[in-house]
């Protein structure tokens, strides 16, 4: 797709999505779309550091969790929600930079398992310190409007896509992709690998923190350790890989597909979508490393050859 056409299509889609709260008859549609938008944001944020810079971060939930924790605490305490979310993103990013300097000494799979351990450390700590369930005050529940959450989710998803789109075409984005392909060669040709990896991590975790804040704003009651759970990381990873890792459209396609399958299958079989997604994911890693985006490109190429 050419850039102006893609942009035009994007504007149409966003306008249509913005109109949904006016026409939706039940909350179910809004909830569904909210989940798609939240998943898109989370997956896209993971995609920055893992897909573009090639650093498979298995502790991503920690930043989603930090954003949720900070936002929830400040917001319930009376801070305006946007400000609280900003603070959440700030905390997540600060923490990320702090550990990033250490964690980026690890390469490849060791970075992955190291961050996995970090995420678990944080989840267990939060679970130990804040064992009580967090529920919104009665007054907040009484004035709860789903549409507010939905619009925020839409805005955040659009902003995330814009950031990643701009990153993909920037010098920094190219440098990150060079690191993904071959870190030593990239450094040899003058790329500041550590700096760019930290930049990718900062962007990625700021967006993850905002997504966590959105979750805290959306969800009425949950355990504080829940947003730190590893399944958030795994969701992001699955969505990104199934859609197409290291691409702009991939996480969007993946999120739609994932939430659709999850919501549809969950009606009848709890967790069954994970069986299908696990198998699908293995197939994609082995046979179609480009995910749905690559599949679509191949189909288009095939169709193009048939009908010139």
């Amino acid at each position: 797709m050419t850039r102006p056409r893609g942009l035009a299509l994007g504007v149409v889609v966003v306008a249509a999505l913005a109109a949904v709260p006016r026409v939706a008859r039940t909350d179910a549609e809004l909830n569904f779309l909210f989940l798609v938008l939240l998943s898109t944001t989370l997956a896209q944020s993971w995609n920055i550091v893992a897909g573009y810079a090639g650093q498979v971060n298995l502790g991503h939930a920690a930043f989603f969790g930090l954003g949720a924790l900070t936002t929830r605490t400040l917001w319930i305490g009376g801070t305006p929600v946007l400000l609280a979310m900003g603070a959440g993103a700030l905390v997540a990013t600060a923490f990320a930079l702090l550990i990033g300097v250490v964690a980026f000494r690890l390469r490849g799979a060791y970075f992955a398992i190291g961050t996995l351990a970090l995420g678990e450390i944080l989840r267990i700590t939060v679970g130990n310190v804040l064992a009580e369930i967090s529920t919104l005050p009665a007054a907040t529940i009484a004035s709860y409007r789903l549409a507010d959450r939905y619009y925020l989710a839409l805005a955040l998803a659009v902003a995330t896509l814009a950031v990643v789109g701009a990153l993909g075409r920037s010098r920094a984005g190219l440098g990150m992709q060079a690191i993904r392909e071959d870190e030593e060669a990239a450094e040899a040709s003058g790329v500041n690998a550590l700096g760019l990896k930290l930049l990718a991590l900062a962007l990625s975790t700021a967006l993850a923190g905002l997504a966590g804040g959105l979750f805290a704003y959306y969800h009425i009651s949950y355990y504080p350790s829940h947003p730190f759970g590893p399944h958030w990381t795994f969701d992001a990873l699955l969505i990104t890989y199934v859609g197409g890792v290291g691409t702009l459209h991939g996480p969007v396609l993946g999120a739609i597909f994932y939430v659709l399958l999850k919501e549809y299958l969950a009606v009848r079989w709890v967790d069954f979508h994970l069986l299908i997604f696990g198998a699908l994911f293995i197939g994609i890693v082995l046979l179609l490393p480009g995910g749905l985006v690559e599949a679509a490109a191949r189909l288009r190429a095939l169709a193009g050859r048939r009908a010139p």
């Binding site: 795994f234 990873l237 699955l238 967790d271 069954f272 979508h273 994970l274 069986l275 997604f277 696990g278 198998a279 994911f281 293995i282 890693v285």
Partner: peptide, 9 residues
């Protein structure tokens, strides 16, 4: 990871 997910489910 995919295998773990599938086996869990």
């Amino acid at each position: 990871f995919g295998l773990a997910l599938a086996l869990d489910a």
